[in-house]
Nucleic acid binder design. Structure first.
Lengths: 222, 222
DNA sequence: TAAGCCTTTACGGATTCCCGTAAACTTTTG
DNA sequence: CAAAAGTTTACGGGAATCCGTAAAGGCTTA
């Protein structure tokens, strides 16, 4: 079994039972942090001392606090950790159920498993850890089906996200065009932007901009 | 200390540590359900057998499932329970942090305490339980400040919610007018609806309908 | 360099939103 | 009952969107 595991989870109510669960399956050294920054520092320190972590279990969203942090989300944390320790295994344990987000974690952040918080998530988590330890690939069954349906959503890029954000901020096409020119985003003509919005409306089956924002917010894109 | 307590929480990872915590402060009989329907039935059954619960600790959101349920949210559960056992005490333990929602729980559902899930929520929960047992009123300090600021939001009515929902569904003003006429909602003329939208835009400082939907969704109104 | 292809931008008309004013209606009040 | 006050609806003009078509620009290729 893994010897050294790090848990990054802000909610104490969850962290407690996570630690218990992982003890049960025979992990010897368990560390826990409530903040992303701390988690990153621990990984870095352990790596420098040649006592590196083998596995990280982390949440995706962390509540804002009085404390100021450099890293404020699970995704940022994962990317930062992967940069300094590529071989580390990562399990995401989160309430998130938007398949867009989850697919992106596998594809762009290289996580090894995703376990959704739920009614039997602790046993699921145990399974995932054991399979990962045996170098089996852990496939989250629940999401394979959705994955295919949502492939269009997966093609949404940074450009579209920025566009949607500005729209949601109440900007007019003209203002969006100016903003894009300022930030070097292209295309940035009125017509091109309108065309792109049209594509988005088609993808998401929205009648107008208002509904488009409502839908993309529900998808967790904004 | 309270003798008989019910916990309604779907996430196993949280339920486990909730039960532990409540045991620690001396509660003898602790029941736990993962579904709202079960929670309601347990309260009802206990009441009929003259062994009623003194306290319910419940979450607000419950993950949808293969199982079909009549009650699907904490708010519905609380209202249903209060109808059959008025004197029961209720603590809401949730990640929700929209003050609009929380205020509504105190005002419309008559809950006794609200403890937000967070980095030290278990000790907060203990405090809340003990204060409630001593018949002290538990005031969630973090939210008092926000409460005053958001009083305008609190005046939003059913009418506005319906209006916003239809807008978010991509309806035009004309279509909203027709829908209101069909459902007997009034006022339902184009102009009146436009005027109401204007008020909402003023309240929420939105430039246009698009931003209005984005903001009200963030507020948790939709 | 010119032809062909693709991307980006420009343009125009129909629709909808946006916002102010005024008319019609309802309720309150003296 | 009539005047006043408040609500609801109607109307209209200007702005923004919606959506199709066409022109301009950039890139590849012969």
């Amino acid at each position: 079994m893994f010897k050294k595991v790090l848990i990054a989870e802000d909610l104490d109510a969850i962290a407690v039972s996570l630690i218990d669960t992982i003890k049960e399956i025979g992990v010897e050294e368990i560390h826990h942090t409530k903040y992303c920054d701390d988690a990153y520092l621990q990984v870095k320190k352990a790596l420098n001392q040649n006592k590196s972590f083998e596995l990280v279990i982390c949440d995706l969203s962390f509540k804002p606090d009085h404390r100021e942090n450099k890293i404020n989300s699970g995704v940022e944390l994962i990317n930062a950790i992967k940069k300094i320790q590529k071989n580390i295994k990562i399990i995401v344990f989160s309430i998130e159920d938007k398949s867009y987000r989850i697919q992106s974690l596998f594809k762009n952040s290289g996580i090894n498993a995703y376990v959704p918080k739920g009614r039997d998530s602790l046993t699921e988590l145990k399974k995932a850890i054991e399979q990962l330890y045996n170098n089996e690939t852990y496939t989250p069954i629940n999401f394979v089906a959705n994955a295919l349906q949502d492939k269009t959503i997966f093609e949404i890029e940074h450009y579209d996200i920025e566009l949607l954000k500005l729209l949601a901020n109440g900007c007019t096409i003209e203002e969006i065009s100016l903003s894009f020119k300022k930030n070097g985003l292209t295309p940035n003509g009125h017509s091109s932007i309108e065309k792109r919005i049209n594509k988005l409306k088609l993808s998401f089956k929205a009648n107008n901009n208002v509904q488009l924002i409502a839908i993309t917010k529900d998808f967790g894109l904004l």
